[in-house]
Amino acid sequence: MEGEPLIVQLRDLMPPHEGAGDSIDWEEAERAWGVGFPQDYKEFVAQYGDGEVDAFLTFLVPEWTEGSVPSGAMAEETAEARRMWLEKPPAGYGSLATPPVVAWGVNARADLLCWVTGEQDPGLWPVAVWSRGALAWDVRDCGMLEYLVRLFRGEIDTMWADDGVRRFVHVREAQRLLAAGINPDTGEPNPYAGMFGPPPGRPQGE
Rank of each mutant, 00 (worst) to 15 (best):
E76H: 15
G118I: 08
P70E: 00
G51Y: 04
E63L: 15
P99F: 00
E80Q: 13
A103C: 13
E63H: 13
E76F: 07
V45C: 09
E66Y: 08
R109W: 01
S71D: 14
W125G: 00
P126N: 09
G94K: 07
Y41S: 04
A55P: 04
M84Q: 15
S68I: 00
V102K: 03
G72E: 10
T65D: 09
Y41R: 05
E77W: 06
W115F: 02
L57N: 02
W85S: 01
A110M: 14
P100L: 00
V45T: 12
G72C: 12
A97N: 14
C114L: 06
T58D: 05
D121V: 02
P70D: 00
F59K: 01
P99N: 09
K88H: 13
G123C: 09
P89C: 09
A81D: 01
P122K: 08
R109Y: 08
P89K: 06
P122A: 12
L60D: 04
Y93C: 08
G67W: 10
A103R: 01
T98D: 14
D121L: 12
G72S: 14
W64G: 13
V102W: 02
K42P: 02
E52N: 10
T117I: 14
V101M: 03
G118A: 15
D50T: 01
T58R: 15
N107K: 09
V102M: 06
P99T: 02
E76P: 11
V69P: 04
D121M: 13
F56Y: 15
L86I: 05
A108G: 10
N107I: 08
G51L: 07
A91K: 15
E63W: 09
P89Q: 10
E76G: 15
P89I: 02
W104E: 03
W64C: 01
E52T: 08
M84G: 00
P90G: 11
L112F: 09
A103Y: 00
L60R: 05
K42E: 11
V45N: 07
N107E: 14
V106C: 08
E66D: 11
T78K: 01
P100N: 10
Y48H: 04
P90W: 02
L57M: 07
A103Q: 01
V61K: 01
T78A: 05
W125Y: 06
E80L: 14
